[in-house]
């Protein structure tokens, strides 16, 4: 029997979607061996969170009321103490930016192996079989670990748990050592504001690494002008400082849902896809027919953007 301890994610008073998805992932894993699913919710308005998280499949919710916002030292201490109390076989956390800020520390503190960014999890009670990608999504791998383990799950891979559950909700009195808390959150800032809101656009002409050089950007600007469309981009273009942050589509940028999204020279890393997969129609222009963007594109041109883009601009001039 394998019990599972899953950890919810929240920020600035709101539970994040992955908190409901992790219930599904944890329930599946627990079901495979008839175990229980425990859910931990740490910091913030935990009672309110617990009520929302009490969906089908959760056996027990453990609330740790300590501070408002995420702090990795508080999380690490609370989870290791819950682990000692509950003795689960698997600890699941979101593979979010905050998940990656405490899951490896929890694993190290408990002397457990850790496997991150999983997209599939199975167990026979002894061995955990974790599916995850390598090489930026070019391949998938299966990985086996025996005994107890910590695993982080990728967002939007499992469906969100639904319904109303009948989990017990218990306040867990974690003994947080404040002296061991070595980092302090001093604030939050929204970035990527400005005059253009790409999430409002009907047509996005989105440019990626395939454009090669900043000097080639006018090609894209001319196309956007001809189409009366808005320019957006994948992360590397913003990292390079070629376009401002408010143009970035993806996990750390904006989520967009235009009528037509034209991805030009964008390979389609999972972080990018997270920001644009809700577009009505997706067109990909890319020389690589195996690029991950092809998995979600409706239409594709497997050709050089430096040939196709000028031809398209001409079509509308």
């Amino acid at each position: 029997m394998s019990d599972v301890l899953a950890v919810a994610d929240h920020r600035r008073g709101e539970l994040r979607d992955v908190s409901y998805e992790i219930i599904t992932a944890g329930r599946q894993l627990a079901d495979e061996t008839g175990g229980d699913l425990h859910l931990a919710v740490i910091s913030g308005t935990v009672d309110d969170f617990a009520e929302k998280l009490n969906r089908e499949g959760v056996d027990a919710i453990h609330t740790v009321s300590h501070g408002e916002e995420f702090n990795h030292d508080v999380y690490t201490q609370a989870i290791t103490q819950l682990y000692d109390e509950l003795a689960p076989q698997f600890v699941l956390t979101p593979n979010s930016v905050n998940g990656l800020d405490y899951a490896p520390a929890v694993a190290k503190a408990l002397d457990l192996p850790v496997v991150t960014d999983t997209v599939g999890l199975e167990t026979d009670g002894d061995t955990l079989v974790a599916t995850r990608e390598m090489y930026g999504g070019k391949v998938e791998t299966t990985n086996e670990l025996s005994g107890e383990a910590v695993a982080t799950i990728r967002g939007a891979e499992w469906p969100a748990a639904e319904g109303t559950g009948d989990a017990s909700v218990e306040a867990f009195d974690a003994d947080i050592d404040e002296d061991a808390v070595g980092s302090t959150v001093t604030g939050f800032e929204e970035v990527g504001g400005g005059d253009v809101d790409i999430s409002e656009a009907d047509v996005l002409v989105s440019v990626g690494r395939g454009i090669e050089e900043e000097d080639n950007l006018p090609l894209i600007e001319e196309l956007a002008d001809a189409l009366d469309a808005t320019i957006s981009s994948s992360r590397p273009i913003v990292d390079n400082g070629w376009l401002p942050k408010n143009r970035q589509v993806g996990q750390s940028g904006k989520v967009v849902t235009p009528d037509v999204y034209i991805a030009i020279g964008i390979s389609g890393a999972v972080q990018h896809v997270a920001g644009m997969k809700g577009s009505d129609t997706i067109v990909a222009i890319n020389t690589d027919p195996n690029a991950p963007i092809m998995d979600i594109a409706d239409y594709a041109i497997h050709d050089d953007l430096f040939d196709v883009v000028p031809a398209l601009t001409e079509e509308f001039q």
Binding site: V139, A297, A300, I301, E315
Partner: peptide, 27 residues
């Protein structure tokens, strides 16, 4: 602790329509 037991190309869920031809035709 982790043993890599399999590696494969992810199954494409793609039902993409690929436009063939030269740049002018695809454009």
């Amino acid at each position: 602790d982790l043993e890599l037991t399999d590696m494969y190309e992810p199954e494409s869920e793609s039902d993409v329509t690929v436009w063939e031809g030269g740049a002018e035709e695809t454009a």
